[in-house]
Amino acid sequence: MSLSLPEPITAYFAAEHDPAALARCFTAQAVMKDDDHTYVGIDAIQAFMAEASAKYGATTVPFALEHDDGAHVVRAEVTGNFPGSPIDLTYRFRLERGLVASLEIAA
């Protein structure tokens, strides 16, 4: 099954091991929530993503897309070096001007 995602979301998943490319997916004031932490701004998001990529080496495969209250909600299987791998996670994206304005990742 082929999943058709909006371009900013496709770019986000394509760049999962390239923190500089990931940073280009976000607005300057973007907010990202993951693992009970909130990261505000590109520098904070990029630093978190670089650390997570190095630590977990996770690979993400999106398999479902829904729309909810203006958000793009993507379900994805994530496999990596962490307890419980693989796991299905929910990525809730809000887009602005072709970039990710907010992203919330939850189990």
Rank of each mutant, 00 (worst) to 15 (best):
A71D: 02
P62Y: 13
L89A: 14
V100G: 06
I42M: 00
A50Q: 07
V31R: 15
A76R: 03
A58M: 13
A44W: 10
Y12D: 09
K33R: 05
I45W: 07
R24W: 13
E16Y: 10
I45V: 14
K33Q: 06
E77V: 10
Y39L: 08
F13M: 07
L99M: 06
H17Q: 15
P19T: 11
A44S: 15
L89Q: 12
V40I: 12
A76V: 08
N81Y: 13
A23N: 06
E77S: 12
A44R: 13
Q46V: 01
G70N: 05
A106G: 04
R92E: 00
A54L: 13
Y56T: 06
A47N: 05
A47V: 01
R97I: 02
A21Y: 07
P62C: 11
P8W: 07
L22R: 13
A50C: 02
V74Y: 01
A23V: 01
F82E: 12
F48C: 13
K33M: 04
V61W: 13
Y12G: 10
I45A: 12
V74S: 02
E7C: 00
E77M: 11
C25I: 06
I87S: 15
V40H: 04
T60A: 06
V100T: 10
L3N: 11
T27N: 09
F26D: 07
Y91E: 02
V61P: 11
P8G: 03
K55D: 03
A47P: 02
F82Y: 12
Y39F: 14
Y39V: 01
L22N: 07
A64L: 14
L95P: 04
G41P: 11
V74P: 03
D35E: 09
T10K: 12
S53T: 13
F63Q: 09
G70C: 05
H67K: 14
T59M: 10
V78N: 11
G70D: 04
Q29W: 06
R75H: 06
L89K: 12
P8A: 05
F26T: 04
F48V: 09
A28T: 14
C25Y: 07
T60H: 03
G98S: 07
S2W: 02
L3C: 11
S53Q: 10
S53W: 09
C25V: 06
H67A: 09
K55E: 02
P62V: 11
D36H: 03
L5P: 00
T38N: 00
Q29V: 04
L95C: 02
D36F: 03
R92P: 00
L95V: 04
D18I: 08
H17E: 12
I105G: 03
S2Q: 05
D69E: 11
G98F: 09
A107D: 10
D69R: 10
L103S: 04
F93R: 01
P8V: 05
